[in-house]
Simulated scan of single mutants.
Amino acid sequence: MKITDSVLRSFRVARTYRENSDKVNCLEYSPNGENAISSSDDDRIVVYDITRGKPIDTLYSKKYGADLIRYTHRDSQKVIYSSNKLDDTIRYLSLTDYKYIRYFPGHTARVTALSMSPVEDMFMSASLDKTIRIWDLRTENVQGLTEPLDRPICSFDPDGLIFAVGVNSQSIKLYDVRAFAKGPFNSFELRMNRSCDWTGLKFSNDGKQILISTNGGMICILNAFTGDVMHKFSGYNNSKGLKLEACFTPDSQFVMIGSEDGRVHVWSTENKMKVAVLDGKHPGPISAMQFNPRYMTFATACSSMTFWLPSVEDI
């Protein structure tokens, strides 16, 4: 099934799970789309089976807390996650026996972004300590650091060849993965609403666009090659300055974001038109959302987790 305006408008809530007692910080689909995992403020890490449509296990990280979580690039049984208690170490966890494989210490302040390379055992982390660190899953030793950057967020491109860094909510720097020690090979200054801060940065799957999320009522899409602002999207509720996650659909043709009133807003990246507003009856703001990379489904989360499917009758 191709993702179209009518298909997106047809999406309805398929299942809602209330495994958490507090806000879900992050959710992530496995590379094959068959599993999903979430981390939350109640220290729970919940694993979901997408093919069976249900949660299959819950882990507790009471000592360290659980903030950002990512599957490794080719293994749906291993994840990395950042902490929001005790220290700012990143942990590498096996989901088969729930044992830690490795620890990645070094950050001295909260991790603000965690991005796994799509092609190799490399990941990077950005922190309020003004560093971006490059890691290899096979060793706890940091592989490299960028120069000090104010309030950084970061993401790999879909080919794993470059990564982008958002700095101080006003500029984008592009780095070559193999030569990041030389500094950025390109940078863009953006003129955006300075009353809000950038909270997320993602590439589209075709590598042509960069999506910037904010803690205000606006998200924007940039040309990944020139840095030009292509579209700005607003008209969703975020009056409290929340960190609301936005995402592309896998075909890069649409962008989605949840709002503080529990609705999902969808726009076309081609014509800038809003194509859908979907009500998932979330009791709180939608803090996390992702579209499945393989299957026609997406997930949204507040303190509960909701999975969506298209309704054939409505297409």
Rank of each mutant, 00 (worst) to 15 (best):
G200K: 09
G200L: 08
L201D: 08
K202N: 12
K202S: 15
F203S: 14
F203M: 08
S204C: 08
S204K: 06
S204T: 13
N205P: 02
D206V: 07
D206L: 06
D206E: 03
G207T: 01
K208V: 02
Q209S: 13
Q209V: 02
L211R: 01
I212D: 03
I212K: 03
I212T: 03
S213V: 00
T214F: 07
N215C: 04
G216H: 08
M218K: 11
M218R: 14
I219C: 09
C220W: 02
C220D: 09
L222C: 12
L222T: 09
L222S: 10
N223H: 07
A224F: 06
A224P: 15
F225K: 04
T226V: 10
T226R: 06
G227P: 06
G227F: 11
D228I: 13
D228A: 13
D228M: 08
D228Q: 13
V229K: 11
M230N: 07
M230Y: 01
M230D: 02
H231Y: 05
K232F: 02
S234M: 10
G235C: 05
N237Y: 11
N237C: 10
N238P: 00
N238I: 00
K240H: 09
G241K: 08
K243Q: 07
L244V: 05
L244H: 13
L244Q: 10
A246V: 07
C247H: 06
T249L: 00
T249K: 04
P250C: 12
P250R: 15
S252E: 00
S252Y: 06
S252V: 09
S252H: 07
V255C: 13
M256G: 11
M256D: 10
I257Q: 11
G258T: 10
S259I: 05
E260F: 06
G262V: 14
R263E: 13
R263K: 15
V264S: 01
V264L: 15
V264P: 11
H265V: 09
H265S: 14
W267G: 06
W267T: 03
W267I: 01
S268Y: 01
S268M: 03
T269W: 00
T269N: 02
E270M: 01
N271P: 03
N271F: 03
K272C: 01
K272V: 08
M273W: 04
M273F: 10
K274A: 06
K274H: 11
V275A: 01
V275C: 04
A276Q: 10
A276Y: 12
V277H: 00
V277S: 01
V277L: 00
L278M: 15
L278V: 14
D279Y: 06
D279W: 08
G280Y: 03
G280F: 09
K281C: 15
G284E: 15
G284F: 15
P285Y: 15
I286F: 09
S287A: 04
S287Q: 05
A288Y: 01
Q290F: 00
